[in-house]
């Protein structure tokens, strides 16, 4: 798996729970040296081991941890670059949703060997979308859930989200758009020089 994804988990723990917690998790997962490099490639099992160790350490199910990771990725100032890149997807939350199909391709434009989960958006009814997430690794659907929830806030949209597991690594997220301009949302300045991707 691409180090960017492993590194995201490490930064999430470090920025949310502190460096010591990460070192404990890394030790429990048998990760030596106790860090991921964002531009190297790692065996898939390393991510699973680190996630399992983190879930034990926090006393939280893995799915909940992954949802928190998704929230972290688009809300923490240290990873502002990622939020900005996602905001390029569209001017409104609906446009953003419709850009998700292209997300793996967009990611590959920047980092050619980055394999993101496959995303497929379907319109299931008026103001109702279904997002199919399939990945080699379980848990990514829940990360996507946290990410969507936070991006909806970012756009100021009011949505109701639900996740339905289909198979290991395959989830369907149901998205009901209640109000597309419910709140002000966070500003997005196209030309901001805010891309100091601290750690990702």
């Amino acid at each position: 798996m691409h180090g960017l994804i492993n590194r995201a988990l490490q930064c999430f723990v470090r920025d949310t729970y502190g460096e010591d917690r990460w070192l404990d998790v890394a030790r429990a997962a048998g990760l030596d040296p106790p860090r991921f490099e964002s531009m190297l490639t790692y065996d898939d099992a390393l991510f699973r081991d680190a996630l399992a160790a983190l879930s034990r350490s926090l006393g939280k199910p893995e799915d909940d941890v992954m949802e928190d990771v998704g929230t972290y990725l688009v809300s923490h100032p240290n990873v502002e670059a990622l939020r900005r890149l996602l905001r390029f997807g569209g001017v409104t939350f609906e446009e953003f949703l419709q850009s998700l199909d292209d997300l793996p391709e967009r990611a590959r434009l920047a980092v050619p060997d980055l394999d993101l989960p496959q995303l497929e958006l379907r319109e299931c009814g008026p103001d109702h979308y279904c997002l199919n997430c399939s990945s080699r690794q379980p848990g990514f659907g829940h990360a996507m859930l946290g990410l969507l929830r936070t991006m909806a806030d970012d756009y100021g949209a009011l949505v109701i989200l639900d996740i339905e597991p289909q198979a290991p690594g395959v989830d369907v997220i149901s998205i009901s758009l209640v109000e597309s301009a419910f709140a002000q949302g966070r500003s997005f300045d196209l030309g901001a020089r805010g891309i100091n991707a601290d750690d990702l």
């Binding site: 900005r84 920047a110 030309g191 991707a197 990702l200």
Partner: peptide
């Protein structure tokens, strides 16, 4: 603009590595 930001972020990560 998207590509520029994405590439800069990726280059940044590479440079630090």
């Amino acid at each position: 603009l998207y590509l520029f930001e994405a590439k800069s972020a990726a280059m940044d990560a590479s440079r630090r590595l």
